[in-house]
Design a protein around this nucleic acid. Structure first.
Length: 567
RNA sequence: CGGGGUGUAGCGCAGUGGCUAGCGCGCUUCGUUCGGGACGAAGAGGUCGGAGGUUCGAAUCCUCUCACCCCGACCA
């Protein structure tokens, strides 16, 4: 490709709206163009890179036994009503009517359709297992798109679905997919973490996310250096420091004028925060719920949501709290019966806690569970935090931010039951097919690769996903001899099967060209110039190398090939 | 949805009631340059996001509205 013919231009300045490296660099290097919030065009360079990523994914999916197919993005809303997701997905689901007034959706994912396909084509255990996948555009009307291709409303996703007779078979498919994912990330130079993840309201038992650690990530990952335990903070368990149990003292009232927060309370009374209990009020599907954790811990809202089996969970408003007869700032479960109470087992780790007295400016000392109060649900709802101990090996946990670049789920039979996808076993008994699903955001994978592989000068493309392998720079192309030599080299490289981007702009200064080459980040740079030509040579430099080496013009193709093979 | 911002040339920005709306980059033409973002000269390029209003006069003031960005909420 000749740069003079490439439509897209690089930007001299950083786009001010781009906060993350991948967003900034993808805009600056002319990879993407924004059309609307969370809607991007992939420009020619990005599209070449994305096609390479897709092909890597295809090779690994096929090797793991997947069959590629293509399902429609446009689907009847009725199908989504059968699984209940027309409601549960809410406004994320792009909805419209066709010309006859039939409700339609743009699919955010494809469980419904793929299950319908399998229902029509699989009747016997002999037909199982199968893994189907596609690479296709998804539509999700996200509340807040952000960070370039990291969170968008239209994106290409590889989604795979496994259909198995039983859980053992599902385990096999799940492991095969997990292994394929690891290979995909390795080939894209992405050192990912595989983390235990929450499977969501409809999910089955197991779920793992693949995350790239980066400070700009949207997720928090809890990791253990000791045993390798890795989990999304939404899911992670931690062992918090135990409080010594003491003999229970009598409950007594203490005046705490103006004290509203745990920190202020602990400070005011001169006790550790872990010696207090924290009250938090939520609205679970509009029902006010009283939540209690030990004062030094935070509520994990995902765990709480799962324990309540609700669709919607948010903090209760001040009005709702007041209406429920609760005293914000001085609340405790003692004497509370009008709302459901949920507590974390941490309230049993210790004794003689300071808690609210359910009257303004007043607390109790020496509250003990269950002597002084009961709860309706006692279950793990604490957020694991760095410093807590690993539940497996006891090593202090660490936290890191990450971008999710893949997610795999064991779905179980919820979709096959909702849509009637059944098979007959050897005894002629009918069973719902057990399912798993496996997703990779292709564009997000590219963004993650850029996020992971860049320096202060620009992108450092991993060779397997670089749009071109070689960036050929011609300096002083108004010098006819140089232009002839550079053009000749360009043709030779392509004739040797080496994908080459040729900066053939005749009127640009050397600095502009070299900076653009660094910004675009192709693995290998070749420079043809009057100076080099006097030695009948070109200059060769890897993107990450400091010094260039001189290569005789006759040897360039061979040298390039050996460089790329070792890259 | 809550909070904070921004919309003026392809890009980045200045311009708080008064002449023909500017600056830098980029773009076109000519010339000089030529190894890390050159120089000179001459040019092209604008319904100032949109609608309504106030005014002799609006990019500028008012009302409404749309879009986009950032933080949060949300988020298979």
């Amino acid at each position: 490709m000749r740069l003079t013919q490439l439509v897209t231009k690089t930007l001299r300045e950083d786009p001010p709206e781009a906060e993350t490296a991948s967003h900034r660099l993808m805009l600056r290097s002319g990879l993407i163009y924004q059309v609307a919030a969370g809607v991007y065009a992939y420009l020619p360079l990005a599209w070449r890179s994305l096609r390479k990523i897709e092909n890597i994914i295809r090779e690994e999916m096929d090797a793991a036994g997947g069959q590629e197919l293509m399902m429609p993005a446009l689907q009847p809303r009725e199908l989504w009503e059968q699984t209940g997701r027309a409601d549960s997905m809410g406004e994320v689901l792009f909805s419209m009517e066709d010309r006859r007034g039939r409700p339609m959706v743009l699919a955010p994912t494809h469980e419904e359709v793929v299950t319908s396909i399998v229902r029509a084509n699989v009747q016997s255990y002999r037909d199982l297992p199968v893994i189907l996948y596609q690479i296709q555009t998804k539509f999700r009307d996200e509340p807040r798109p952000r960070a370039g291709l990291v969170r968008v409303r239209e994106f290409d996703m590889k989604d795979a679905y496994s259909f198995n007779a039983d859980d053992d078979s599902l385990d096999d498919s799940y492991q095969a997919m997990a292994q394929a994912y690891r290979s995909i990330y390795r080939r894209c130079s992405l050192p990912v973490l595989m983390a235990e993840a929450d499977s969501g309201a409809i999910g089955g038992k197991d779920s793992h996310e693949f995350l790239l650690a980066t400070p700009t990530g949207e997720d928090t990952v809890i990791t253990c250096r000791g045993c390798g335990y890795t989990a999304n903070a939404e899911k992670a368990e931690g062992v918090y420091p135990e409080q010594e149990a003491a003999s229970e003292l009598p409950l007594e009232t203490v005046d705490t004028p103006g004290v509203k927060t745990i920190a202020a309370l602990a400070d005011f009374l001169g006790v550790a925060t872990s010696q207090t209990l924290k009250a938090v009020f939520y609205a679970a599907d509009e029902e006010v719920v009283f939540v209690t954790v030990r004062g030094d811990l935070e509520v994990n809202e995902v765990k709480l949501k799962n324990s309540l089996h609700c669709n919607d969970l948010r903090l209760a408003t001040d009005e709702e709290v007041k209406e429920a007869g609760l005293v914000a700032g001085s609340a405790s479960p003692i004497g509370i019966t009008q709302v459901r109470r949920v507590a974390d087992p941490s309230i049993t780790q210790g004794s003689n806690f300071v808690v609210g007295a359910n009257q303004p400016d007043t607390h109790y000392r020496n509250a003990n569970y269950p002597r002084d109060f009961e709860v309706d649900i006692l279950t793990d709802i604490a957020l694991a935090q760095p410093g807590h101990l690993c539940p497996r090996c006891g090593t202090p946990l660490e936290a890191t931010r990450g971008v999710e670049v893949g997610h795999i789920f064991k779905l179980g039979t919820s979709y096959s039951e909702a849509l009637g996808a059944m098979y007959l076993d050897q005894e002629g008994q009918q069973h719902p097919i057990t399912m798993g699903c496996y997703g990779i955001g292709v564009g997000r994978l590219l963004a993650a690769a850029v996020e992971q592989n860049h320096d202060e000068r620009g992108i450092v493309f991993p060779a397997p996903i670089a749009p071109y392998q070689v960036h050929l720079v011609g300096l002083n192309l108004t010098d006819e001899a140089v232009a002839i030599a550079a053009d000749k080299l360009y043709r030779e490289l392509w004739d040797s099967g080496i994908e080459t981007l040729y900066d053939d702009r005749p009127d640009q200064a050397a600095g502009v060209k070299l900076n653009d080459a660094d910004l675009m980040g192709l693995p290998l740079r070749l420079v043809v110039s009057p100076r080099n030509l006097r030695n009948n040579a070109a200059e060769m430099k890897g993107r990450t190398e400091e010094e260039a080496t001189m290569v005789s013009l006759e040897d360039v193709a061979g040298e390039v090939r050996s460089f790329l093979q070792s890259a």
